[in-house]
Simulated scan of single mutants.
Amino acid sequence: MTRTCFRGVRAVLFDLDGTLIDSAPDLGSAVDTMRVRRGLDPLPLEHYRPFTGSGARGMLRAAFDISPEHGEYEALKNEFFDVYAGCLTQRTQAFDGVTHLLASLVGQHMPWGVVTNKAERFTLPITRSMKLFATASVVICGDTTAYAKPHPEPLLEAASRLGLAPGDCIYVGDDQRDILAGRAAGMRTVAAHYGYLGPGADASTWGADAEVSSPLQVLNLLELP
């Protein structure tokens, strides 16, 4: 963990997949179902996990070695969305330590929220089905604003809904887009090394203000009583 202490923090914002929740089992299961439908051998979860942070693009790359430029990509993406919508709360769980982290923030009257690129169609069923999100002060989805991360607008919208200046918030995420968005929004940023990161990713090069290897280390970055 980076030895940094943030002063004057009034809210903590988090990415969702790979930062608060481990959704890889459901995402991997959805795209693997598509492989089996086509007579292909199933692949283990660990094959899919590094690609999870890239959403449909990453899952389809992992399962079919296909990119958005491929002529069949859009059809496969829509099929993936439909399959995933039917299983998105079956295996998804909070990472170890997240429940304690969020309870500690609430106990210190520190507002927290979610800013994710995941569409509302998927985000809201997950956050409504998991008790830990009941205390979230704001949830911004990938289609809440006109832009998604790495654009800063979703983070600026979250700060606005909290009634805070962006500089009063820190943003925690496991993807370079999270750090780019946070910095562009004027927030201090934390790279979550325990997340999905992506193949070949080196989070130490992202320019985050701090880095953590477990959710609970976020508490050590805050000047809480």
Rank of each mutant, 00 (worst) to 15 (best):
I21D: 04
G58M: 10
L124K: 15
P111C: 03
G39Q: 08
L224V: 03
L197P: 08
M187Y: 03
R183Y: 00
V190I: 09
A203P: 15
D143K: 06
L221F: 01
P25N: 11
V114N: 00
Q108K: 13
H47A: 14
H70M: 11
G207C: 11
G71W: 12
D178F: 00
Y171F: 12
D209M: 10
D41W: 01
F64S: 08
L156M: 01
P68H: 05
L124C: 04
Y73M: 12
E69S: 15
V212S: 03
P68K: 02
S129Y: 06
V212M: 05
R183S: 12
L221N: 02
A62H: 14
A94T: 15
W206F: 08
G113C: 01
Y196S: 10
R38C: 04
D209V: 09
P150I: 02
G167I: 02
V36M: 10
Y73G: 11
A192L: 03
D96T: 15
R3G: 07
L155H: 01
G207S: 07
G198V: 11
D15C: 05
P199F: 04
D41Q: 15
Q217A: 08
R121K: 15
A11N: 02
T52K: 13
L219H: 04
Y194W: 07
G71Y: 10
Q108F: 05
Q217T: 02
G39S: 06
Q90R: 15
C87N: 13
V36N: 03
G200R: 08
R57F: 06
A24Q: 12
M1R: 13
T127P: 07
V139M: 04
R57D: 04
